[in-house]
Simulated scan of single mutants.
Amino acid sequence: MATRRHVLAGLIASAMSRPSWADAGSPAFLSAARLPSGAFALFGLTEAGATVFTIPLPARGHAAAAHPTRAEAVAFARRPGTYALVIACASGTLRARLTPPEGRQFNGHGAYSADGAVLYTSEVVAESSAGIVGLWDTAGWHRLGEFSSGGVGPHELRRLPGSEVLVVANGGIQTDPQDRSQLNLETMRSNLSYLSPDGALLEQAELPEELRQNSIRHLALAGDGTVAFAMQWEGDPAEPVPLLGLHRRGEALRLCPPREEDLFAMRGYAGSIARSGGLIALTSPRGGVVQLFTAEGAPVAGHARPDACGVAPVAGGFVVTDGGGAVTRLTREGFAPLARAAAAWDNHLVRI
Rank of each mutant, 00 (worst) to 15 (best):
N214M: 12
N214Y: 04
N214V: 11
S215F: 03
R217M: 10
R217E: 01
H218A: 02
L219D: 01
A220E: 11
L221I: 14
A222L: 12
G223T: 06
A228D: 06
F229H: 00
A230R: 06
M231A: 10
M231G: 04
Q232E: 02
Q232R: 07
W233V: 04
G235F: 00
G235M: 06
P237Q: 01
A238F: 08
A238N: 04
A238R: 06
A238S: 14
A238D: 05
E239P: 00
E239T: 14
V241L: 04
L244G: 03
L244Q: 00
L244P: 03
L244F: 01
G245A: 07
L246N: 06
H247I: 08
R248F: 00
R249D: 12
E251D: 14
A252T: 11
L253T: 13
L255R: 11
L255M: 14
C256L: 15
C256G: 12
P257T: 08
P258A: 08
E260D: 15
E260Y: 08
E261T: 10
A265R: 11
A265K: 10
G268Y: 03
A270H: 00
A270L: 03
S272E: 13
I273F: 03
R275N: 10
G277D: 11
G277C: 15
G277H: 03
G277N: 07
G278T: 03
G278H: 03
L279C: 06
L279A: 15
L279Q: 06
A281C: 11
A281R: 00
A281W: 08
L282Q: 04
L282D: 05
T283I: 09
P285M: 13
R286L: 15
R286S: 07
V290D: 07
V290R: 01
Q291F: 08
L292S: 01
L292K: 05
F293Q: 03
A295G: 09
A295L: 15
E296K: 13
E296F: 09
G297A: 10
G297P: 13
A298S: 05
P299I: 07
V300H: 04
V300A: 08
V300I: 12
A301Y: 00
A301C: 13
G302R: 12
H303S: 13
A304Y: 05
A304W: 01
A304R: 13
A304H: 12
P306C: 10
A308E: 02
A312K: 04
P313I: 05
V314S: 10
G316I: 15
G317V: 12
F318S: 09
F318M: 15
V319M: 13
V320H: 01
V320F: 03
V320Q: 08
G323F: 01
G323H: 03
G323Q: 01
G324N: 06
G324R: 06
G324I: 14
G325H: 02
G325Y: 10
A326T: 09
A326I: 08
A326Q: 12
V327M: 06
V327I: 14
V327Q: 02
T328N: 13
T328E: 15
L330F: 11
R332F: 06
F335D: 05
A336G: 11
A339G: 10
A339S: 13
R340P: 05
A341S: 14
A342Q: 07
A342T: 08
